[in-house]
Amino acid sequence: MGVLLRAQGVSKSFGGVQALREISLSIDQGEIYGLIGPNGAGKTTFFNALTGLYSCDRGEFEFDGKPLKVRAPHEVARAGIARTFQNIRLFANMTALENVMVGRHLRTRAGVIGAVLRDRATRAEEQAIEVRARELLDYVGIAGRANDLARHLAYGDQRRLEIARALATEPRLLALDEPAAGMNATETASLRDLIEALRRDGITILLIEHDVRLVMGLCDRVAVLDYGEKIAEDVPEKVQKDAKVIEAYLGGSLA
């Protein structure tokens, strides 16, 4: 299996605070790669830099062997990287189905003229968008909620909807920002099943997560950030025993 994403010396500072310091890492095709670290370690900043919401001060990303040069967020999505947000960002007043249909925007073409004339090709495309969106809702397990407004979904279902919407962009790398935050044990377990299913279907996953047990059980490899620096990167068993990591976590929660 080849390398899918390679980050090389990525740095970012806000004012005087160095949020990311020379982060280099590589994620292999088909793996589940965990990114952990204490609060404020720079995990979400890394996500934002990767997905083009922030520009990096230094460093670069290489995706599937090609440098990610043009780094507007929609270009990153087009290249095949999709993400979810830590604090769930859905289109609150659109239905679940419409949310996922928006995710198809990138892979469809109809413009103003097609929309107005509604020619055969446009109709076929609209139909395909809807079919695919329903499939994805079904895939993440919320097909029954298709016509509910996103804001009215239960918390766990909103997380699932966000994943379905990300999947609609046909990503090769799916970046999940704390998908289990605020979930109870049952919800977390079924989220875990979903992530494993995604991997079986060939999607590489980058996972930020606080739930250490989830990360350790699920990930093939884990990188640990602390104060914007990568202090460890290895298989979960080894990372758990790393002295620096234990120190960063004050020895506590990793045991």
Partner: peptide, 29 residues
Amino acid sequence: VRLEDSRIGRAWVAIREDEVAAKACGIDT
């Protein structure tokens, strides 16, 4: 009416609802 119920119309509403999420969904806002 036709525009509203189309790929373009959905993208407009998505931007209204959450511009950052719309960008992340691959919309050239």
